[in-house]
């Protein structure tokens, strides 16, 4: 499916003139992410406070740990009260919760979604699988260490971690943002080549641009 859509092809204009299409180059902006340095002083502090109190989570169940995220919305845990909300689109989200193991196939989607989120953005990695592969450490199609591929802000251990652990992890993330250390996006931009090399090493059918705007 994907290969034929990434190769160059010829189409004909209404007047019959041939047009060469280079899908990756023509359809996608590509390029590299930019580093957007934080402002200094009180404005950035205020902004960081707002960011930490309004964490919009990208609702993307990547692994089995996603099952543990659902209870957060229930009356028992009610994560809303801390300013967490679920958004259906990466454009508007600021927190990407990687919920457990990442298969190679999912990783590509995760990378694309992550890159489509706007700076500043944060990654919460959930469960042991994201740290060392967990029970899938020797699997042929899952990754072992997430932070080889994406800058992770918070790891939450466990297989799987309980919702309470998640809340604690989010709390940790909040503190980190407030302290001005939530610069994962800039880190990703700075070390873009390294991340990209790692990603490409594991994803064979690379049919997306190097950077997804």
């Amino acid at each position: 499916m994907s290969k034929e859509h990434t190769e160059k092809r010829i189409v004909y204009s209404p007047d019959g003139e041939p047009i060469e299409i280079d899908p990756i180059k023509d359809y996608f902006e590509g390029g590299r992410p930019e580093i957007r340095n934080p402002r200094n002083g009180i404005i950035e502090k205020f902004a960081n406070w707002a960011r930490s109190e309004s964490l919009w989570i990208l609702g993307f169940g990547t692994g089995c740990g996603a099952i543990e995220m659902r209870p957060l919305m229930t009356p028992r845990f009610d994560a809303y009260r801390f300013g967490y909300q679920w958004r259906p689109t990466p454009r508007q989200s600021s927190v990407f919760v990687i919920s457990g193991y990442l298969s190679v196939k999912t990783l590509k989607r995760v990378i694309r979604s992550y890159e489509q989120m706007q700076n500043p953005k944060f990654v919460v990695a959930l469960g042991s699988c994201t740290i060392n592969g967990g029970m899938y450490y020797d699997s042929y199609n899952t990754i072992n260490r997430l932070d080889h591929y994406l800058p992770v802000d918070v790891y939450i251990t466990g297989c799987m971690p309980r919702p309470e652990a998640l809340l604690a992890g989010f709390d940790h993330l909040k503190r980190k943002i407030k302290e001005g250390r939530g610069e994962g996006a800039n880190k990703y931009a700075e070390n873009f080549d390294w991340y990209k090399a790692n990603q490409k090493k594991i994803i064979k059918d690379w049919d997306i641009p190097d950077y997804n705007w």
């Binding site: 930019e34 109190e53 009610d78 809303y80 508007q92 600021s94």
Partner: peptide, 29 residues
Amino acid sequence: GARVGRRYGIRWYQPWIDIIKNYAKRTKI
């Protein structure tokens, strides 16, 4: 709405924060 669902719910000033947060985003396309 949250209280009807027996939740504590968001803070009443959450909408302001959300707006500030969005305006504080650094990149846009």
